[in-house]
Write a protein that binds this DNA or RNA. Structure first.
Lengths: 202, 202
DNA sequence: ACCTGAACACCGTTCAAGT
DNA sequence: ACCTGAACACCGTTCAAGT
């Protein structure tokens, strides 16, 4: 593994090996069984005691965060690259699709992520902030191009991407694609002629 | 309780009392703790054995279905009434808001509902179908008024309502409202002048 | 016909004891 | 410095035995 998902400071060789094995098995288990899968099974598959797992990752969120580190960096980098794409709308849509696709690879992850925003101390909190910040630049560029309405913030787009990823876990791939497309189109400015067509109502 | 949530055929008086108490406690527990709350706690609160709970409701979904029966009937009736609303767009939006609000009252319900569509034998499957059918009439009416694009089906709208309800569980009420509004606006036809503004891309 | 509660298998989390 | 595994508290689900 690269330096991205290694812990803060030097580690004893056996500890480091356990850390890596736990991370690798967690990735498999989360992908196959969802983010609520048994931690004891992860420890078992990694060949260590459950106490060792807790020693390295005090909470499920900490383990998820460590597992996501690399891919989040990658998504942030992709956002950076897409800023150079000729079409601000396409760039935004592509990043949203890539992000939603990644999230929906782990059942329950969208829920873990979006709910982490309720607590600053949740290890996933910063991860969400990074992704939101990365999306913000693409969103603002699309807004400047007249493709995004004023009241839509980067947090809204992040929530929509999560919602699409959540839906994608439950429906067919085709419908999942369609739903994300609808959501992104929903960020466009509402054209005057279709606004409140008949009656505003109370 | 009314006849709506009583079981199929005559029941012994004590059985009926247990059934009703379980349903009442389930409603409270699901509302306070979410749809993954402990069934044993529901039985405890209802003052019956866990075996009695399983005797009446063989699965968690069966208990949820029984609990939702009345409110789903109500939402179907509301859809009916809204067909007479002068604005097809407003009617659709109001039904969607009412439905999302109801669903988000029980944490985890949106997931239980949308995922039930993967299995015809899930007791919630029919409940989802009823709601989708109710929404379909409002959706088609809005489509006739030019407010909904051709490729958006009633199942898409149902999924979006669920996604909004799911998001509402995790974010603020204001943001939840906004997200649902974005999603519904995403069902509108895309005006020609904002379609693919610069470059379609590969 | 319905209810009870023990039984079984599983899990999250902590922490004293080891090396 | 790190690891182990027993301990505790909890849960889902089934089913023999009761009334």
């Amino acid at each position: 593994m690269t330096a991205a998902n290694t812990p803060h400071r030097p580690m004893r060789a056996d500890a480091r090996r356990n850390y890596e094995r736990l991370l690798a098995e967690a990735e498999v288990a989360f992908r196959e069984q969802g983010t609520e899968t048994s931690l004891e099974e992860i420890a078992r598959r990694a060949g260590v005691s459950i106490g060792t797992l807790y020693g390295h990752f005090p909470t499920r969120q900490a383990l998820l965060e460590a597992m996501l580190h690399e891919s989040i960096d990658r998504l942030v980098a992709i956002a950076e690259e897409l800023l150079a794409h000729p079409s601000p709308g396409e760039a935004l849509a592509r990043w949203a699709r890539a992000t939603a696709a990644h999230m929906s690879a782990y059942r329950g992850l969208a829920t873990s992520l979006l709910s982490s925003l309720k607590d600053e101390n949740n290890p996933l909190y910063r991860a969400c902030q990074q992704m939101t910040a990365a999306g913000q630049r693409l969103l603002d560029r699309a807004r400047t191009a007249g493709l995004v309405r004023a009241e839509a913030g980067a947090d809204d787009m992040f929530a929509l991407i999560n919602a699409a990823a959540w839906a994608r876990e439950q429906v067919s791939a085709e419908q999942g694609d369609r739903l994300l497309a609808f959501m992104l189109d929903g960020l466009r400015p509402v054209p005057a002629e279709t606004r409140r067509p008949v009656d505003p109502g109370p």
